[in-house]
Design a protein around this nucleic acid. Structure first.
Lengths: 139, 139
DNA sequence: ATTCAATGTTTAGCCGCCTAATAATCTAGC
DNA sequence: GCTAGATTATTAGGCGGCTAAACATTGAAT
């Protein structure tokens, strides 16, 4: 099999371009891509522990910790020790963090448009389903 | 639109898992994922300049430069000044670099199997075509 | 009550990407 | 010939991932 024609190769290549697109876009609202994903989890449920965020985002604990450093510095979130368990901290959105949601959603529409550019809506749907399938197979 | 159901979101998430799979696999033959992609270009054509590699791989020049640092240290490639143009260097495979091809191709088969796990061969084909389409749209 | 394993956070350090800025060389234009 | 601009490589530094290892706390077992 030609490596260049494998799904893995194409996916890896596409990844770089897409990550660049994502980063460039969210930079316009003052965020970085990793921060956006953490914020999304907090928008769904505020006050989560770092380990919860790491589990849901499928990221290693130090990765989440590092990203939170930036969000704390940018005043998007606050960190509080968890009374029920001294090992844990809970992360809470600030007003700024909550307000960022609308900005990100707006940007995301642009990102999505550029991502599926050149695909018909049918193709986009099929593509989405296949992506979900791959995600489910937890790779 | 729900961000979590967008192609962009799913793609970004899948990316992380796939990159981890790739990295873990090629580590077993003593390489890193970035190094593999550079080597692939050299296997196609030896003696290229850094800028050529960067263009073909769609990477920034400093990225290629850094990756080459690791390949040089690992004795996979050598670097020579280009006589025709003093600004450029040419990168050449060593025996070790050439021999790595077989090892990587073997590993890649495993990677591909795990990547398309859970997809029928028809689905894999469709997926591949859509990936190529996205790549072509140069995102 | 003590000890020991498990859990959660953090630090250090690595690779994969990037941009910005330098230095060196080449190329044009005058 | 000389200068000005383009091109190539490199360095510095940042974010997005990771692992390994240190640390504190919890919880369980004796």
């Amino acid at each position: 099999m030609k490596i260049e024609e494998s799904v893995s190769y194409l996916l890896a290549k596409l990844t770089v371009a897409h990550r660049n697109l994502l980063e460039k876009s969210v930079t316009q609202v003052g965020l970085h891509s990793g921060q956006v994903f953490v914020l999304m989890e907090l928008w769904k449920q505020d006050g989560q522990r770092q380990i919860d965020l790491a589990d849901k985002l499928n990221l290693a604990a130090p990765t989440v910790n590092k990203i939170l450093g930036g969000l704390l510095e940018g005043d998007y979130v606050t960190r509080e020790r968890y009374e029920d368990d001294g090992r844990s901290t809970r992360i809470f959105l600030t007003d700024k963090g909550e307000n960022a949601k609308a900005l990100v959603e707006e940007k995301w529409t642009e990102i999505e448009e550029q991502t599926v550019l050149g695909m018909s809506s049918t193709e986009a749907l099929i593509f989405k389903q296949l992506l979900q399938k791959l995600m489910g197979a937890d790779l």
